[in-house]
Amino acid sequence: MTTPLIKAHGLRKQFISYKKNPGIMGSFTSFFKRNPVYKDAVKGFNLEVNKGEIVGLLGPNGAGKTTLMKMFTGIIVPTEGELKILGSNPWERDKNFRKRIALVMGQKSQLWWDIPAMDSFLLLQKYYEVSNDHFKQRIDKMSSLLGVEELLHIHVRKLSLGERMKMELMASLLHNPEVIFLDEPTIGLDLVAQENIRNFIKDYHRETDCGIIITSHYMQDVNALCDRLVLIFDGEKGYDGTLEDFEDILGSDKSVSFSFKEAQNLEHPLFQGLDTTWNDERTNVDIRLPEEDLCLLSAKIISDLPVEDFATEKLPIERVMKELMNNPEILRQRRGSLKSV
């Protein structure tokens, strides 16, 4: 077996910040004496990722996703634990290591604001020692895939967020990295731009078989791209497994919803004994039921009641994510029960 792309064991990162009371007195006292506050942004984190995998790293804001990404790329140094990316210690930041990875951050730009993207690309070409032929070939290919051929010579500050993000992606992939870290690459983009970026990443991955770690708050991203999910809550790993298993975390029941032309009688025999959630006007119901009963019951409701519209759930992952964010204990219990088995 080849070396894993990422291998982390017992990873921990601690940050120190200082507490300050508001107002003049607060700043006066903290001027002379500061109260440090220690916080573990990541703790006891284990992970192994192999060649060709696309791993979605999910978790609420402040869970430690970005901290992890920064440790993986060698920007910050872990407080404790073992970490090997492509077989090297990222924070030693060996030049050859840096040539083999890429990081894209949706919230930070690496392009130079005041000049066209092409100028930044040319600089990166020199940085990464990419040959002219190779450079031209990659630029042509990626810009046509992303449909930005016309924008390469426009000042970056004049581009829209979506266009800029495409340029950021190109900038990071010029040197053909083996592992790509994408930190919220679709943040703030409109639906079409999100989809463009997703398709591009998918195509790129199919062609190069590189490893990709992606964080995102959009479940469509995860659904479309990732074979594997890693959940992080409060700095700790909460889940690591396939997308399908994740969807079944709260049980394998399916969800179907119906809207009716008029208010319904909740006592109708069809609804008895089912797990239903009605809206206030009683014109819409969500029903959760085992997969095998889905077709039969739906057919019955449609034929017996004045159904206006019905839908089965498109993104079960979204429901599961929401539920877990509201009740992270579920994961803890689940882990506990797994351990006891």
């Binding site: 060698g74 930041r93 050859n96 890429a102």
Partner: peptide, 12 residues
Amino acid sequence: TGQLDYVILKPM
């Protein structure tokens, strides 16, 4: 601003 991230990543 944390923009140094990208500088650190470069193989120079």
